[in-house]
Every structure is written in structure tokens, then in C-alpha cells.
């Protein structure tokens, strides 16, 4: 009979990680990985998000997200212009096509984090396991959102290509301000993801029908971002809201980089920008600074909102609830 004081042999696969000098417990494992750990969690989440959301191997899904949705959105606006006809409408065609193409990234980014939370909570029921892992929950969810933004970027590029080839958008690669485009793209992605983080904070508190919320939020931001019409058309108060929105500056900067001769969505006759600054349109440095400032403020607010929502969700046991109706 075996000696009850002798522990049974441990199967090979269960052998603990042993650090010399710390045979029993390694406190380093509880300290966390710091910035490196966050980066690892972030990149892993981006890879997971890309693997699950990018649809290279599924032509139907690629078509839906990267072609049909963004191109249809642009075509709606183009036809609206054609319906009205006239010089004004022709002048605005490039304006709306570029704005609509860029909006594909906005929708993906806004929906990305929110849908990731809803999916993990309602469908895969994995959220509690993600939450209790050492990786920071916000960092992981942000990584998933970034993957979706990248998917949206494919839609943007395709829509722009359709615009150039079929809809007469005048694109000259030698006239594109590539440094500006690079800068505003990076800052813009941060701004987009921060909006997504705010929405993620909201859906942590709400129930399954929140699947539709990203669409609603993207649609509402459409109004004040200058994506498809100059802000000057709006009442003054709405224009001011637009000026405080990083998305408006991102679209202005991207449009200026891609189409240097394009009409400004921020400035122009009757615009709040003109009233406030006395200049017809913002300069390129002004655009970058405004994007940086509004983006930073938005990112800070988003982080605070998410942490607050996380605390509330933890307090009320919402993190692993299922809420269908």
C-alpha cells in the first residue's frame, strides 16, 4: 500500500514552471508584465481580431464588409447628388465620395469594440475568462477594435478606388500630401477607437439589442463630422459640436491630403470657423493640432468612461450576464 504521506507523482504535463531560487511561488508572476505585457496583450488581441474578422478566405464576407457596404453608402450619396443635378452637385461628388469612403473606417472602429464585447458576452460566453486573465481588459478589447478598423480600412481603399475609376474622383498620387495623410490617419485611428471605447462602455451596461447601437452612433456622428456636407450648412451650435469632434478634423485632414483642391468641410462661407477665427479654412498645421488636441481629450474621456463602466459592471455582475429578449 502506498505511503499516504508521499504525494502522488505529478504527470509530466502538469509540472510547474520552476524558477531557480523560487521553488514554491514566483512573485514575479503576480507582478504583471508592465508595458511589455500590455503590448503583448494588445498585439495578441489584434491578431485574434484579424483572424476572426478579416475575411480573406471567405469571399462572401470580404464582399459584404469591404465592398458592398462602403460602396453602397457612397453610391447613395452620389445618386442623391445626381438627383439634384447642377454644378453644385458635381462639385460635391468628390467631396461626398471621399467622406463616405472614410466613414467605412469610422463605422468599423465604432462597432469593433462594442461588438467584441457583445459577442464575447452573449454568444461565446468568453468574456469572464478574458476578464480574469492577466491581460488588461481594455487593452485586449482595444486590440480587437483595431483589427476591425483595419478591416474597415480595406473598405475605404476599395471605395476610393471605385470612386476614382468609376465616379470621376480626381486622384493624383503625385499631389497627395502623404506625410499629412500618414499623420492624420494614425491620429484619426486613435480618435475612432476612442469613440468605440465609449460605446463599449455603454454596451457593457446594456442588453443584447445593443448590436444596433454602433450603427446609430455612426449615423449620428455623420451629422457633425463634415463627412458628406460642409459643417457650414449646420446651425452654429451644431458646427461648434463638430469642431470639438476629432472625427471632423480627421476627415478634413484626410480629404485635404488626398484632394488638395477639395472644398473644406470645416471652413467656408457661413461657417463657425470663419466666425471664430476670421480665416476661411483651417491650415494644415491647425488641422493636425486640432486633431491631436480633440483626439487626446476624447481618448482620455473614453478611457475614464470605460473604467467607470467596467467598475459598475463588476459591481452589478453584468460582465458575464446574458440578456437576450
Amino acid at each position: 500500500m502506498s505511503d499516504p504521506t508521499t504525494p502522488p507523482p505529478v504527470p509530466a504535463g502538469f509540472a510547474p514552471l520552476r524558477i531557480p531560487g523560487w521553488e514554491d511561488f514566483d512573485p514575479a508572476r503576480a507582478r504583471g508584465g508592465g508595458l511589455r505585457g500590455h503590448w503583448r496583450g494588445f498585439t495578441t488581441a489584434v491578431r485574434i481580431g484579424w483572424a476572426t474578422e478579416a475575411n480573406w478566405t471567405d469571399p462572401l464576407l470580404f464582399f459584404i464588409y469591404s465592398v458592398a457596404k462602403p460602396v453602397s453608402a457612397a453610391l447613395i450619396l452620389v445618386v442623391m447628388l445626381e438627383v439634384i443635378g447642377g454644378a453644385t452637385s458635381r462639385q460635391y461628388r468628390s467631396f461626398v465620395v471621399v467622406g463616405s469612403a472614410l466613414w467605412a473606417m469610422v463605422f468599423s472602429g465604432i462597432a469593433g469594440l462594442a461588438w467584441s464585447i457583445l459577442e464575447d458576452r452573449e454568444r461565446y460566453r468568453m468574456i469572464k475568462y478574458v476578464y480574469v486573465s492577466p491581460a488588461d481588459f481594455l487593452v485586449v478589447m482595444t486590440g480587437r477594435a483595431v483589427a476591425r478598423v483595419a478591416v474597415g480600412a480595406m473598405g475605404t481603399i476599395i471605395t476610393l478606388a471605385v470612386g476614382v475609376v468609376l465616379l470621376g474622383v480626381p486622384f493624383d498620387p503625385f499631389r497627395v500630401d502623404w506625410p499629412l495623410l500618414a499623420v492624420v490617419t494614425v491620429l484619426g485611428m486613435v480618435a475612432i477607437v476612442s469613440v468605440g471605447i465609449v460605446l463599449g462602455a455603454v454596451v457593457m451596461q446594456t442588453r443584447q439589442e445593443a448590436w444596433q447601437y454602433p450603427e446609430a452612433v455612426a449615423g449620428a456622428l455623420f451629422l457633425v463630422s463634415g463627412a458628406v456636407f460642409p459643417l457650414a450648412v449646420l446651425p452654429f451650435a451644431a458646427q461648434v459640436v463638430g469642431l470639438l469632434t476629432p472625427l471632423a478634423w480627421w476627415i478634413e485632414g484626410s480629404r485635404r491630403a488626398l484632394l488638395p483642391d477639395s472644398v473644406s468641410s470645416i471652413g467656408g462661407e457661413g461657417s463657425a470657423w470663419l466666425d471664430l477665427t476670421g480665416t476661411v479654412a483651417p491650415s494644415t498645421p491647425e488641422i493636425v493640432v486640432a486633431l491631436l488636441v480633440t483626439g487626446a481629450a476624447g481618448t482620455l474621456a473614453a478611457g475614464l468612461a470605460f473604467r467607470s463602466s467596467e467598475r459598475r459592471a463588476k459591481d452589478r455582475g453584468l460582465l458575464d450576464q446574458t440578456t437576450g429578449s
Partner: peptide
Amino acid sequence: LLPFLTTSAFVFVYRALQA
């Protein structure tokens, strides 16, 4: 509220075009 704002966006597109 938000869908109302979305509809408003398209209203302003037509206004911008003086439809």
C-alpha cells in the same frame, strides 16, 4: 434620438445641394 440625427444628416446633404 440618434437615428433622428442620422436622418438629419441626409436632410443637410440636400440642403447643402439646395435641393
